[in-house]
Write a protein that binds this DNA or RNA. Structure first.
Lengths: 247, 247
DNA sequence: GCTTGCAAGCTTGTATACAAGTTTGTGGGC
DNA sequence: GCCCACAAACTTGTATACAAGCTTGCAAGC
């Protein structure tokens, strides 16, 4: 594949996985072309590839936008992840020691980063656990699929403001690895199902994704000074179910 | 999405699923452009999308080719299908009657087509069962993934000359649906795993995909007159493991 | 007769120009 | 003061021209 185009694609995807690009972000062709030092042609190529991967969308003659999955699409993404990840664990007969060691190392890294309070790389690592798992137990094809799905769920999480429970997620991961080590893959699958269920349940899928995300930030710049990385206090109006998109 | 480009993409994919396009087929941009009455730009767009879906590949300045999965890639594709399809069956709690009815109808159609000896639509229907299942039990996202995977395995089957056992496959499908009807999803999953295993085992993955496919046909055009749709007799030389790609 | 080098033609790769449509800012009318 | 219409700027959509490279056929040399 084209090195430059592949770079753009990869750069954007990994930025999404790292939570550095929010859903709904506009990705102008010319802007990206300047940024990467290539022509619009290559940018378009990368964007179209990302579109088939379900990561960006084009709005005719308006531009490319990072997808903002609907509640329905969010449910689909989580169901799909549940199906594939539990399926993977249940299909595998035994876990090689090398894989176990590598997974344990990953979980340890998670804990470390969480304790250090590094918010930005935290989300990335938590998602990476699943990609790592697919890579270790499955194959490249499976990994690619999981990676795209993880990008989706990462965007969904950003969109539906989850009650972030990084420690709990990491703890879940630990439990899954423990079950794998014990050779109880069925239990590992059950825990995985539960884990994904928890993440999904932590979202407020009844609330529509607010098109005004970031507005609160603009209105209260002081909050950015040095506050704790806890969940920002949502204002009451953002919970009103009567708010329509046209507002 | 672009209607014309989407059509090209869809046309090629469904042609592959129907077995009407063989692996390794060259897809010239200009040829396709003329065929569909569009410009090369649109064709390229469709091809790049199909490339990210793993259906075609580009060889620099030589052209686009329908993929010819290696033995390794074939194994990956089957593993991935096993993971997802058994995962789907095991994730589902209960099967709605409407779904059961629809699946039964599909299996009945399979039997009918097989008895009628319609070879071309037979392979299509057998693959369609899995797509149909994903659609009925899963969601659009899952269906899309399974569809792409089915396209892959269809190409793999063409490439590695399986011992085609259409009746057996259809019978397997029937068994899976029966287990679903009995409410035993775990058994259904087990049968699905077994079924996919059988299809994979029916292939000769030790034989490299012969780059001379179709050569035998050219040498023996008489065989095309009106022979039975049974498996063509493979010549002994095609089994020689010492044949290298450079031959 | 066989091999090797060259050239012509064909195919994709890439950029660019222009067309078509959307957004936004401005000015006039009410 | 508010609303509406128009125009200018900006963005993507599409085609086309040209560049770069591969394949193949031909001819010359051995």
């Amino acid at each position: 594949m084209n090195p430059a185009a592949a770079n753009i694609e990869e750069a954007i995807l990994s930025a999404i996985l790292a939570g550095r690009i929010a859903p709904g972000t506009r990705l102008g062709e010319q802007k990206l072309a300047d940024l990467f030092g290539v022509s619009r042609t290559r940018v378009r190529e990368a964007m179209m590839r990302l579109e088939t991967r379900g990561v960006v969308q084009v709005s005719a003659r308006r531009g490319w936008y990072v997808v903002e999955p609907s509640a329905e699409e969010a449910r689909e993404a989580f169901q799909t992840r549940r199906v594939i990840e539990t399926g993977l664990l249940q299909t595998v007969r035994e876990v090689p020691p090398r894989v176990l060691a590598s997974l344990k190392k990953h979980v340890a890294m998670e804990r470390q980063v969480i304790e250090a309070g590094d918010v930005s790389s935290r989300a990335c690592l938590l998602g990476d656990f699943h990609i790592h798992l697919a890579d270790a137990l499955g194959n490249r094809l499976l990994t690619e699929i999981i990676r795209d799905l993880t990008a989706r769920t990462t965007l969904i999480s950003m969109l539906y403001q989850p009650t972030e429970k990084a420690e709990e997620s990491s703890h879940d991961h630990e439990g899954i690895v423990a079950a794998m080590e014990a050779g109880d893959l069925a239990e590992a699958a059950r825990l995985m199902d539960e884990h994904i269920g928890k993440v999904e349940a932590g979202l407020d899928l009844t609330a529509r994704p607010d098109p005004l995300a970031g507005l609160r930030e603009l209105l209260t710049p002081a909050a950015f000074a040095g506050n704790t990385p806890s969940v920002p206090h949502a204002h009451s109006h953002s919970h009103s179910p009567s708010l329509r998109k046209e507002d």
